[in-house]
């Protein structure tokens, strides 16, 4: 019997021991086992990253202009689509799928007409970011996004206390 290798140097021994063909060892190929799949995966990942970086960098650095910046750059902006940010004033009016209101920021006020339904949290006093363009001195908006602040206040903080059963302490006069 041979040691360490599967081949025998003696031709006679080879003829004595009939070596059966070994069954093929079936190994499941790894998900990215082939070079072709790796290449496709690489192209998809690089493409996705390039798209995200492009979108991110072109938007992130100047995601919106505040109302005062937009007013100052009105001539330069022309009818170009951009985002404007400001706080909604009290004069909100809605009629025929149009929302008419004003926003203000740093002392500048901008009249807005929006052609879509505003989101659930839209109301006077809340900061918003609008997508649209200048139409003369009015900002024509086609998307309202509410930019709510990072602060949270409980609507009725004493709710739990009011639900607790009331107890009468000894000596306390009952009505």
């Amino acid at each position: 019997m041979a040691l360490t290798t599967g081949e025998s140097s003696d031709p006679a021994s080879t003829s004595r021991i009939a070596v059966p063909p070994a069954p093929r060892v079936v190994r499941r190929r790894a998900f990215l086992g082939s070079r072709r799949r790796q290449f496709v995966a690489g192209v998809v990942i690089v493409g996705a990253m390039a798209f995200l970086i492009f979108q991110g960098l072109s938007n992130a650095t100047e995601y919106f202009l505040t109302a005062d910046q937009a007013v100052a750059q009105r001539a330069h902006l022309g009818t170009k689509q951009f985002r404007i940010e400001g706080t909604v004033e009290q004069n909100v009016r809605q009629a025929d799928h149009l929302t008419d209101f004003s926003i203000y920021a740093n002392g500048a006020s901008v009249a807005v007409v929006d052609s879509n339904d505003p989101p659930q949290l839209f109301r006077p006093g809340i900061p918003v970011v609008l997508e649209g363009h200048w139409s003369g001195s009015i900002f024509s908006s086609d998307l309202i996004m509410v930019k709510h602040s990072a602060s949270y206040t409980e609507a009725h903080p004493d709710r739990l206390k009011s639900q607790l059963p009331t107890t009468t302490t000894p000596g306390e006069a009952s009505p």
Binding site: Q55, G56, N59, Q120, L121, L143, M145, V146
Partner: peptide, 13 residues
């Protein structure tokens, strides 16, 4: 809350 499912701002991107 915002009115959109997604927007390309810096945090989300």
């Amino acid at each position: 809350a915002w009115g959109v499912w997604w927007t390309w701002d810096a945090r989300l991107t």
